[in-house]
């Protein structure tokens, strides 16, 4: 390798507080950086950066961004197999979207999903990761159990939850019935809860699906936060403990600030996921995709139906543009929020 022991020594250097968190021991131990070749260094750094990014950028431009523009471009035309026969509509589809009540329903549903799923995943994901960090016995087993839903294929998840939610056979309603009998016998009839239709009811279906999404995606969040928690050098905690901090202040003043970049990732990714919610909704609403009276319909699912069940790919592309703009705005706001909270 030729890098020698010097490198090894550096790799094994302890973490040093630096600019991130000021602990008492975080004094600068590494000497001043040489700034003499600043210009050449900066150019060199940039050249390295572009070299590293060359293949990925070709990939993104050619296989991600260019196809996206093609999809956007489609939204200006009526769809036809033969590109020469696609009729230019300009903003036609965008005008149609304004009057499309099914799309409006999908939009409201999607925002509601995001409003439920994102906070629930953040709180539960972080909470479970913290708990998993405490336990030492059966640790891998516990982790596997909390990760199990994430590895279960979507069709199987939908099938099992469909049965659990079933009005006439589901175990949730079995429990409600037992519960009601228990309280009725004890003369407390106001505690009785009737069996619920869950997925079969337009007012409950969206929440029932959201529960499944949170349940299934939780493993993802837990793993992210576990990795994030491991990234916090133990010495920060040790230092704070020497100062006599209790667990809450450790969490509030060490864990949370240091987890900020990871939380930014978690929140932004789960928001993007929620706004593009598709798999769970397709699989779980059995009677008709999109739920009774479109109660679980999402924008992504609506787009998919328009494209592949109705062959209206131009209109579907316009819906994609809408979804893209929506997600872009939300993400930029979130990025700004998280980058403001901690300055490096």
């Amino acid at each position: 390798m030729g890098l020698g022991d010097g490198l090894k020594a550096i790799t094994q250097l302890p973490y040093l507080g630096g600019s991130q968190v000021q602990t008492k021991r975080g004094q600068e131990q590494i000497g001043a950086r040489p700034r003499r070749f600043k210009l050449t260094l900066a150019t060199r750094e940039a050249l390295w950066a572009y070299a590293f990014l060359l293949i990925p950028l070709i990939f993104y431009l050619f296989l991600r961004i260019w196809p996206a523009f093609q999809a956007f471009w489609l939204s200006l035309f009526s769809w036809h197999v033969d590109p020469a026969q696609r009729e230019f509509l300009g903003a036609g589809y965008y005008r149609d979207m304004l009057a499309d009540s099914k799309l409006h329903r999908a939009l409201t549903n999607t925002l509601l999903y995001a409003a439920i799923i994102v906070p629930a995943q953040l709180v539960l994901g972080l909470g479970i990761a913290l708990l998993l960090n405490v336990v030492t016995v059966f640790r891998p087993l516990f982790r596997a159990i909390y990760f199990a839903p994430y590895v279960t294929p979507a069709a199987a998840v939908a099938w099992v939850w469909g049965w659990m939610y079933s009005e006439n056979f589901g175990i949730i309603n079995n429990f409600l019935i037992e519960w009601s009998i228990f309280w009725e016998e004890r003369g407390l009839p106001w505690l009785v809860i009737d069996p619920q239709p869950f997925l079969g009811d337009p007012d409950q279906a969206l929440f029932a699906v959201a529960v499944v999404v949170v349940w299934k995606q939780l493993g993802f969040q837990v793993v992210i936060f576990l990795a994030g928690l491991q990234g916090i050098p133990r010495m920060y905690y040790d230092a704070a403990k020497i100062d006599g901090a209790n667990s809450w202040s450790l969490f509030r003043y060490v864990t949370l600030p240091l987890l900020n970049p990871v939380m930014a990732f978690s929140v932004i990714i789960s928001t993007i996921y929620a706004l593009q919610l598709f798999d769970e909704v397709v699989n779980i609403n059995f009677t008709d995709q999109g739920g009774p009276l479109n109660s679980t319909l999402t924008i992504a699912l609506y787009m998919y139906q328009e494209a592949f069940a109705r062959f209206r790919l131009g209109y579907a592309a316009a819906v994609v543009v809408l979804l893209f703009v929506l997600i872009m705005i939300v993400t930029l706001v979130q990025l700004r929020f998280f980058s403001k909270r901690v300055e490096y």
Partner: peptide, 11 residues
């Protein structure tokens, strides 16, 4: 990330 892959399959 913000474009559903369902729409990219055609291009």
């Amino acid at each position: 990330l913000m474009i559903p892959t369902e729409m990219l399959v055609i291009p």
